[in-house]
Structure formats: structure tokens, C-alpha cells
Design a protein around this nucleic acid. Structure first.
Lengths: 224, 224
DNA sequence: TCAAAAGTGTTAAGTTTACACCCATGA
DNA sequence: TCATGGGTGTAAACTTAACACTTTTGA
């Protein structure tokens, strides 16, 4: 007999705000629900926490179920616990955001879940408090991305400086000065020129760079 | 019959990191537990979420139970959901921090709970993951206090500039330059000179100031 | 040859930091 | 009269912001 048996227990779920970056835009991976409750409406990917997993593990599992991706950067947004946030039954939900390389996900799984990448500035209304979760996740992402080198997690291994700048412009929702931006990046010696040229974005071609995590851990500070 | 009945349910609790400021030091209100589990050890004040209250409401209730204080600034830290964080039974806990004016609390209630104000840099080891909660709360407080005028919530209505500086030194854990600090504050026109003098801190006396919330909301930005 | 993206420095403005002395008062 | 905390300004270092032209190349 536990100490706590006098107290009520609750369903606890996790909801994942999955950020991707493609062609200069941030997108979210959203479900067009073909299941109850709220069938036919848009929502975040979520799932119930199970007995044998931490809430962090639940978030990773839910992300993997939808995308096939493991070892993905995730950060907790916060817990949402209004009485009526889920009109069906009371559920306390913990929101997490994930940063994925949008080229890597498992298209079959995503299709099976009836999920789509939706551009940040074309988001539909979502069920429950999912809009609020997204808004707060974005705020946290902006905050964190400005002081920690997590933006690279949205990019492929190798990227051009123009792509990197487009990424940060998309995250902050404002345009940045090209020369000032490149000056900043030049000071980060953990952003290394690979030596190869990417010709897909322009005739002239642009130098490819790579984020060296080890070098960053040793010495780096980050600010963009 | 709900949609979710196949899923497990969990005890959900809230734990409160209660910050106060007194004589140049930040303190936390901690319980020396005279109840199970972990009787005899230090812990945060906590409580189980009930059926009829949101998690935010639960946090407010728990704070009020211990201090008698209502309408207090609280901010969620995050949800803690490791499998074994509570060695008794599985409990998912949501941590909140509160900023209280340390002169205002109900001493009877605090005594009844066997709680004490403990200086931040003399914290005992606490049960479960409460140390981790405090560390994260402090990090969030520092972050937030540097960009939003929440520090005033730790002070009485009227305060001297020296007190205000001591507060921010305590929050950041570093000393600040007096002249630079006062230059900053002078630019905040929502920090108003009351016109009266506080003679308790020095023979000469120091001008009293007040934070004008309305004026801040209209126009203000904050950065310290 | 020209359109399109890549790449490159300088200057002014603003912000941050460092620093030391006089003032008013009660004991 | 003196010990104590209150109050005040300036200059140097650094950071941020604004700004425009040349290069390369494939079509």
C-alpha cells in the first residue's frame, strides 16, 4: 500500500512540436487526425506516457513513432494542465520540441500517420491547447537558438553560409545583414569550411561548412 | 467510457521553489519534513494535484498552504518525470518557482509546517530531485530577472537603490558597479522616486523608490 | 552577356566597463 | 569628528549596425 493512495491519478501525455527547415522556411510536422478524438482536425503528434518510461522517453518514443528518428535533440517546453484542455477527459500534457533534419525522416511512417510538414506562417488552427504549445515552443526555440548552437541540428552535416543565414532569419522571423552575419560566423572557429563547393544553389557555387561539436565543447561560446 | 481508458494514470504533484530576499541574501523556504516519506530530511513544499484544479492552481494552493500568500508571482520551471524520482511510488512532479516578499508570509503556518528560510548558498541536500529543481529554477529566475522586471516582486513596495542593487547582485551571484547600476535604473522612468527618505540603512538616509507597474506596461523595456 | 547568388571592410553609433571622490548624518 | 553608507560623471574599449560593390559561372 503506497503513501499516496488517497490522491487522484491522471492521464499524462506528451505532445511534440517537431521543427524542420527546408528551402528557407521553418515547418512543423502536424497530424491531420484520422482518429478520435477530434477526427479531421489538425494536431501535434502526441501519446500517453506509459508505466515503464520517463516523460522524456515518452517524448522520444512518440517522435520515433512518427518519424523513425532516434537520437534527436528534444527540449521540454512545459507541462500543460488546465482542467478542460482536453474536452474528452482530463489529461495533463507535457510539450516537447524537437529539431530534426527535414531530409531524414521516414516518409512511410509519416504518411501512415497522415502527417504533413506545414510552414510556420501557414499554421492551421489546432485542437486543444496545441496552438499555445507551439507558440511557447517557438519562443523557447528562439531564446535557446540565440545562445546555444542548436540551430545546426536543423541542417544537414554540410551547409552553406547562405543556408545558415536563412535558417536564423527563419527562426527569428527577421532578416539579418549578410556581412555582419558572416563576420559573426567567422569568429566561430568551430564552424569549419569543409573545402568543397555546393553548386546546387548558384552558378558560382558556395563554400560548404560543418559544425564541429567537439571543438565547440572544448572552447566555444555562441551568440547569434 | 473514455477514449483513454487503456492508458495508465499517474500521481501528479507540484513542488514550489519559494524565493525570498532578506538582508542582501536570497533564501528559499524549505521543509524539514516531519512526515513520511523521507521524514527528517529537507525538501521543497509540494502537494498532489487534485481532480478539480489545474496544475497552476495546485501550485498556488500549495504556496498558500505554506505561506498564507495569494496573488503571488509564480512561473513553471518544468515537469520532472523520471521513473524513480520518488523512490516510494511513481509521481510526476511539476516544479514552480514563486517570488515572495519575505516580510509578508504567515509565520504560524510556516512554523506549523516546520519550514525555514534557508540561504541560497547554504542549501542542504534535499530529497528526490529537489536539488535539480532548485538549480533549474534559479537558472530560469536569472534568465527572466535580467529581461523582465520581476525582481521587484521580491522587494517591499518602497525600496532604496542600494537594496535594489543588492537584490540583483544576489540573483546573479556577482557584484555590480554602483554607478553603472544607478545609470541603468535612472533610465527606467517606471522606477519612481517616492520622495521620502529611508533612514534605517544609514545615517544620511537613502531615497525611496517604487516600481510603477502601470507605467512599465505602457512603455517600458527592462534590462539589467 | 547577363542574371543570380557568393563573397568581402569600413565607419559611425551605441553600449559596456572601469574607476574615485564628496556628501550628509548620527553617534 | 569621524565612520558609514549615499550619491555622482567621464573616458576608453568594445560591440552593433548600416551600408555597396566585385566575383564567378551557367544558361
Amino acid at each position: 500500500m503506497g503513501f499516496y493512495s488517497a490522491h487522484p491519478r491522471f492521464y499524462v501525455s506528451v505532445d511534440c512540436i517537431i521543427f524542420g527547415f527546408h528551402e528557407g522556411k521553418i515547418s512543423l510536422l502536424l497530424l491531420k487526425r484520422n482518429f478520435e478524438p477530434a477526427k479531421g482536425e489538425w494536431s501535434l503528434m502526441g501519446g500517453f506516457v506509459q508505466e515503464d518510461e520517463s516523460i522524456d522517453d515518452a517524448a522520444r518514443r512518440v517522435l520515433a513513432d512518427l518519424t523513425g528518428l532516434t537520437d534527436i535533440y528534444m527540449d521540454q517546453v512545459e507541462a500543460f494542465g488546465s482542467l478542460d484542455r482536453d474536452p474528452g477527459e482530463r489529461v495533463i500534457s507535457v510539450a516537447y520540441y524537437a529539431l530534426v533534419n527535414i531530409d531524414d525522416y521516414d516518409r512511410e511512417l509519416v504518411k501512415k500517420h497522415n502527417a504533413y510538414w506545414v510552414n510556420l506562417d501557414e499554421l492551421p488552427n489546432m485542437i486543444f491547447d496545441h496552438d499555445e504549445m507551439v507558440a511557447l515552443a517557438l519562443k523557447k526555440l528562439r531564446q535557446k537558438a540565440s545562445t546555444q548552437p542548436i540551430g545546426f541540428k536543423l541542417l544537414p552535416e554540410e551547409f552553406t553560409l547562405t543556408t545558415l543565414q536563412n535558417l536564423y532569419e527563419a527562426i527569428y522571423g527577421e532578416s539579418l545583414d549578410k556581412r555582419n552575419f558572416r563576420k559573426h560566423v567567422a569568429r566561430m572557429d568551430y564552424v569549419e569550411k569543409v573545402g568543397t563547393i555546393d553548386k546546387t544553389g548558384s552558378k558560382r557555387g558556395a563554400a560548404l561548412y560543418r559544425f564541429n561539436e567537439v571543438k565547440y565543447e572544448e572552447t566555444g561560446t555562441f551568440k547569434l
